[in-house]
Structures are given as structure tokens and as C-alpha cells.
Design a protein around this nucleic acid. Structure first.
Lengths: 327, 327
DNA sequence: CTGAAAGCGCTTACAG
DNA sequence: CTGAAAGCGCTTACAG
């Protein structure tokens, strides 16, 4: 069996031929070139011919010629994309589409050897990095794209604030034995570390004892055992800061399995405010992130960068504590 | 302020000049062309020069010449990407990278007028559609890419099976008043509909009364009220089939708020087996999807299609009931 | 207002 | 084994 023969591609030349104009004119019409004044009649002939032939310009050819890609690439090196992120990507996509920019996402930092770097296959004009900007592996990965980078994650300080805010709230509501429940996920250890630091600080300031760090196993039976074991090391009532809402769900389950009253004997605070957070038993008190400056300013920055202008834009995250029933 | 001047791009000509060979040789070496036998010494000189200059080939130029894109585009027209999907994309990416294919994701079906279709900016060699294949809007969107399409979603039949399996299990464990809890999410109504059909069938076969369809509101207070109201319409014990695990969490919360015993008075079955499913109170009984044929076969199909070969591959989903405590 | 022509950077027959 | 050359499809000065 042979390889399929190259399918005939409809080119701008075909369109030009079909309506008896030059390829230049086709290009001017299709790209709405403001420097040209094409008579309406010609314009419509071209547009119709393009439609009839099902013509769409060949992306790599445009790009090779123009040098400007209309592609924005979001780099998401996470084990899993959480729903909050996915929704914000969706919104970004809609907004960027209005500026004729296409948002694409790439998962994973591609550490494999012997294969080509993705930049050999795709040429984004702007990179949106959701990766840890202090990680040199990330920098190495982004560099070959030769595109301006917008770092959308907050810095370490905001992560400390998360832990700090969780702990302060628990201390102020009378819990003096604090726990930090970390995730087993490898890709998240750094964030987790900073959040724990924030908890430590709050304990220092609140004149509590040193908080206990605990990695919660991912099976319910083990989680129960580990938590139970950890709790015996400090007197109740406990304040439990969780790395994120998923860990908080696990904590809530382990506490229920141990018949420990929430929030009376143990209070639980999560982080992320996932959609499911309101449905836990009891409903989860958690931390929500907000992006400052807002989406408008981010869009502006992306559009400018994609045009080769230089802009300064910096992610500024702020936090809110969402108080529900678990703490 | 002027637009930034076009940055000097390092081309294969630069590399060729740097080590005194022709551009052809550079290309042969970098692409590992099996039809050429380049002496090791030359080979290494080229490789090193490329490395030193930080050369990476310009994607659109390669593509324009070769006609073959190494890009695989996953089209995800969902309001949100769930964690299960995101993990499977990650795995797909890793596997495809070994074949020098880059997996990119696109969220949303881009219904907006007046802007260019994404195909003007990107040229995938294979399309992975996670959209409803019977939706003509989806077909219209995919067509301009002129690329072979793999539909990864199961067909309507498998969705009916979901509802059927949920309901059968509940009926067989003694629940004869069945409920189907749908989601408020617009993008998911069609799936939801098929699953409900499956529940209806099971009720017919199991000689139960017609199942009650109920859309669960997204606030906890309203959800409780609506569920309570719905339950009064049929005698306990109730069997509750949920559109997915998120809805099941909501149902569990509403039942707890109403002090209804689970699974005794009301049993709950979800769908998807999300990671959080084991942490609900009580732990969630749910349906898990499996893909047949497996990942290996999918990878094979994608690789073949990207080479222009034609293959027949069809998503075959199978289901398992994961029994935990909620039903 | 329209068209002929150059050239983006690459790969790949082809000639040596 | 290596190099000169063609050409992928497009946009965009430039000449008319």
C-alpha cells in the first residue's frame, strides 16, 4: 500500500483564476487590507469564489511570509487541569478570538530526549506560562519558542499568603493545634512547600506550637489511619490547613470515618474554591484566588505582544477566604 | 513608538555557514534522513553548530515545504475540561511525543463571525474530536482543517448504557422509585438526555414506575429544596441516578441536609469515577468508562493518519460499575 | 485600482 | 558523499 498521494490543496491562485483577478487582489480582499481600495463588486466576486471553492489560506505559507503568527500558546505542565483553569482558558479563548488570535494549550513540559522540541512544529507569537517561573526546566522548555512569555502564576509570596490566611483564620477561631495536609502529587510539592511556610509563620505570630506537616495518602483507608495517628500527637481542637480542596475532601472523609466533629473538634480549610467545595459535608471553607489586574488588561497585553510591541504586565493574585461550614 | 523590528532569526543557512557545509546537509543531519549517509564527523559538526547557535527550524517553512504537519489537535468544546479528560490528554501527549507528534488542545467551537477560522493559523495533520459527532455545528467547524478526524466520544448507545447500568443496579438492590438528576450545564444536555433514556428503559424492563427527571440547581439551598420537593412525589426508598459525579455530590449534600439516610432510604449512583468520588460521604458508587481498543491502538491510528495513511479506528467505550457505599 | 514578481526558510529530487 | 536549485503558498512592496 502506498502513502496517500498529496491531496490537491485549493490555493489563492485557484480563487484568483476562478474570478479572473490576481492573487494579490485575492489576498487584499481576504485580509481586508486597509491600504487598498478594492471596488465592492470585485470584493464580492472574490469572497464568493473563495466560499464556493471552500478556500482557506494555508497557515504555514501565510506565516512564513508574514513572520507573524496569530497563535497564543498556553503551557500547562500540570498532571491535571482543574476545572477553574479550564474555564478561564475557555474565556480567554473567546476574548482572543475577537482579535483574530487562536489560543491553543499544551500540556506537559516534554522532558523526553531524541524527539524534536514542539517549537519545530508550532510557532506561537505569545506564550502563556502556567508553570513555575523559577524552575529552570521550564525556562529551558520555553526558550526555543523565541516568543514573549507572560507568566500567569503568582509568585511564592502569594502561596505563603494562602497558608497564612488559612492558619490565621483557624487560630482566630480558637484552634491552637495546627496541621498542614500536603498532597501526594509530585508536581505540586513546591507550591505545597510555600503554603506550609505560610502556616508556620502564622503559628509563630499567633504564638501557637509548630504546625504538623502530614502527607495524606490517596486511599481512604490509609488516609484515615494516617490522620488518626497524626492527631494523637497534639491536643484537640485541631485546625487543619489543606493544600487544596481535593485534600480537604479527603480530610473531611477521614475525619468522618473517625467520628471527629467538624468544625467543633477539627476545623478544615481548603484552597481553590472548586465548584464541588459547596457540596462537601460540611460545606468547605476555603480560599479563592482572584486575578489582578483583570482579564481586560491581560488580553490587551497579549494582543500587544502578538503585534511585536513590548508591554509590561504582571500577574497579581489576591485572595479571599470563603467561609462555609467546615471551619 | 515603532513596532519592534523583526528579530533576526537563525536559519539553517547560518548553521551551514558556521560549519562550512550546504543547507541540504544541515537538513539531512537534523532530520536524520535515512537515505543519506553523512560521515559522523560532519554530522557532529553540524549538530554542534546548531546547538551553539541555538538554531531551531522554523516550523511554518518546514511545513510549507513538506506538506506534512506534525501537529495533532484535540478539539474540546466543553465548558470545562474534567480532570479525567485532562489526565488522558497528558498521557496521549507523552505517547505522541515519542513519534515526534505534538498534541495541542483547542477549547470551544468558535462560533463567532467576522474572525478567521483557526485553520488559518494552524494546520494539524490529525484532529481528535471530543465533540458530539452528530452536531452539524461541530462538523462545520472541523471541516476547514482538511484533516482526518478521529471521534473519541462514544456514541449515543454507550450513554444509554450508563443510565441503564445505574438504574439496573438500583432496582436490583431494591429501589423501585427512580430519579434521574440532570445537570444545569447547557453543553451536556444531549448526553444527559441519552442517559435518562437508559434509565427509562431499565425501569420499563424492571417493571418500575416511570423515573422522575429533575434538574438539580447549583446552589445548595435550592438543591435541597428541589430534591425534597421531588422526593415527595414518589414513595421511598429512592434510587437516584446522577448525570455525573458532580451532580452526585450535590445530591449527597442535599440528602444529608434533609437527613435522609444513604444508601438505606436513598441510594445514589454517579458517573465518571472522578478522583474525588472515593471521598464523598458516603463514598460514591459510580460508573467508570474504559476505552476499547486501548491507548496503543489509538496512538497507532493517529501516527498512521498523520503520515497520510488511511486507517479505520472506532472508539469503543465499555463500562464498569464501581461499588462503594452510596448505593 | 490591479498585476507581476520577490522572497519568507525549509526540504528534497537531482546532478555531480 | 555534497551542493545548487526548485518550489511549497502566501503577502506585500513596487510598477503600471
Amino acid at each position: 500500500m502506498e502513502k496517500a498521494s498529496r491531496p490537491h490543496r485549493i490555493t489563492s491562485a485557484d480563487v484568483a483564476r476562478a474570478c479572473g483577478v490576481s492573487r494579490a487582489t485575492v489576498s487584499y480582499v481576504l485580509n481586508n487590507d486597509p491600504r487598498q481600495t478594492i471596488p465592492l463588486e470585485t470584493r464580492e466576486r472574490v469572497l464568493q469564489a473563495a466560499r464556493e471553492l471552500g478556500y482557506s489560506p494555508f497557515a504555514p505559507a501565510r506565516l512564513l511570509r508574514s513572520g507573524r503568527s496569530q497563535l497564543v500558546l498556553a503551557v500547562l505542565p500540570f498532571e491535571q487541569v482543574d476545572p477553574a483553569l479550564s474555564r478561564s482558558l475557555k474565556e480567554l479563548e473567546q476574548r482572543l478570538a475577537l482579535h483574530d488570535l487562536t489560543l491553543l494549550s499544551y500540556v506537559g513540559v516534554h522532558p523526553q530526549m531524541g524527539t524534536m522540541h514542539p517549537s519545530a512544529h508550532i510557532t506561537p507569537s505569545v506564550l502563556l506560562s502556567y508553570a513555575d517561573q523559577t524552575d529552570p526546566l521550564v525556562a529551558d522548555f520555553l526558550q526555543p519558542f523565541h516568543a514573549p512569555i507572560l507568566h500567569l502564576l503568582g509568585d511564592a509570596r502569594i502561596e505563603e499568603q494562602v497558608g497564612n490566611m488559612q492558619a490565621q483564620y483557624l487560630i482566630q477561631s480558637g484552634k491552637r493545634s495546627l496541621l498542614f495536609l500536603a498532597s501526594e502529587r509530585k508536581d505540586v510539592q513546591r507550591l505545597s512547600h510555600y503554603r506550609f511556610l505560610g502556616v508556620q509563620q502564622a503559628c509563630l505570630q499567633g504564638e501557637c506550637v509548630e504546625p504538623v506537616l502530614c502527607v495524606l495518602p490517596s486511599s481512604r483507608e490509609e488516609a484515615r489511619a494516617v490522620l488518626q495517628d497524626t492527631l494523637t500527637k497534639s491536643p484537640s481542637p485541631w485546625g487543619i490547613c489543606c493544600y487544596n480542596d481535593e485534600v480537604a475532601f479527603a480530610a473531611l472523609a477521614a475525619l468522618a470515618d473517625e467520628n471527629i466533629a467538624v468544625p467543633l473538634t477539627a476545623a478544615v480549610v481548603g484552597c481553590d474554591n472548586i465548584p464541588l467545595a459547596q457540596w462537601s459535608l460540611p460545606a468547605l471553607t476555603t480560599i479563592a484566588f482572584h486575578n489582578e489586574p483583570g482579564l481586560d488588561s491581560l488580553i490587551e497585553a497579549i494582543v500587544a505582544l502578538s503585534r511585536g510591541e513590548s508591554v509590561s504586565w504582571k500577574a497579581q493574585k489576591t485572595l479571599t477566604l470563603i467561609t462555609r461550614a467546615s471551619a
